[in-house]
Design a protein around this nucleic acid. Structure first.
Lengths: 170, 170
DNA sequence: AATTCTTGCCGCATTTAATGCGGATCACAG
DNA sequence: CTGTGATCCGCATTAAATGCGGCAAGAATT
């Protein structure tokens, strides 16, 4: 029983957490992989690959989704086709007086921001943005300035892209 | 006739190209948006939002996919659930003797590489990788070194993530 | 101004896929 | 050895996607 072990001993509790994730076996991994390649494959089709019935596959997908391992079904879109031609990376040294929480809220709400990570090194945050034109980059920086988030910043433009893909299980 | 215009005049030809992309109207944009949020929505459901019949919606999705504006149907997966806990950015100054094409091939084939862009500034490429552990970062750098791709490099680890999402039309 | 032609849409019929559920099997704990 | 839980299968049901004929609006042609 998980709960008993938990009450007994924190180490065993940790094992149970690990076990919770380990509930995902090779088959789940394979299913997630197949869905990442093409989320429209039928359950029967997937079942043919992993040697399970459609219902069993369905149940596994349900579990993967419920546990958050699969976060959502979506489409990959071409930024250029949607008029977002410019890709840039902005390094930010935060002006902490303006409030780190406010900064995070702003970033999280900004549709142009694709990535924002707290990073090691001389900068506090690394931000990846997609905008329609170069002036979109300027607008973005201007917004950061207006809100007093910037102590210092540096911007790199992406000239071309070798590869750009969301995380996929493999 | 497009072809006649093309033969007449290069400017008109350009207009035709623009027209090709402009074939995507606000409804297509909205549909792509809805699919990005949840690719499993039914055609009827989407049709309800954009005020079209399921068949019309289906036809539009088919066109969006065929034109490449929608690149594929996929799932967003949680890297941590799949054991890829470490996110890092590697800046590379390329040793051009080793061959830029070989570098690109290597990068494109490497499953750990999520992003790789040619960028402005002091570095040639910015690479985003996901690996299971810190030693995975070392392994990656080691591989670049072995192949003589590195003139110089610098690595930033992501300590935490404010937001991380693939491009979505909006 | 009249007439093709094209394009996009609707709505229904058909086909395909997903879902829900009862019963069988297996692993494991008591 | 027996009970318990989890997972699976297979079928019946429900829901969704697909395919196609016909219609209507707008553009191009004459």
């Amino acid at each position: 029983m998980r709960q008993e072990l938990h009450l007994q001993n924190i180490l065993l509790y940790d094992l149970c957490i690990a076990d919770y994730f380990a509930a995902m076996d090779e088959i789940d991994r394979k299913i997630a992989c197949l869905l990442a390649e093409d989320a429209r494959r039928s359950l029967a089709d997937i079942g043919g690959v992993v040697d399970l019935s459609p219902s069993a596959v369905n149940e596994r997908i349900r579990r993967l989704t419920a546990s958050g391992a699969i976060q959502r079904f979506t489409v990959e879109a071409d930024p250029v086709a949607f008029g977002q031609d410019v890709l840039a990376f902005v390094f930010v040294a935060l002006n902490y007086e303006a409030g780190e929480a406010a900064f995070k809220d702003f970033i999280a709400a900004c549709p142009n921001v694709l990535d924002c990570h707290h990073v090691t090194g001389g900068w506090s945050y690394l931000i990846k943005i997609r905008v329609a034109t170069l002036s979109g980059v300027e607008d973005f920086l201007q917004q950061l300035k207006e809100r007093r988030f910037l102590a210092r910043s540096e911007t790199m433009l992406a000239l071309s892209t070798v590869t750009e893909k969301p995380f996929k299980p493999f």
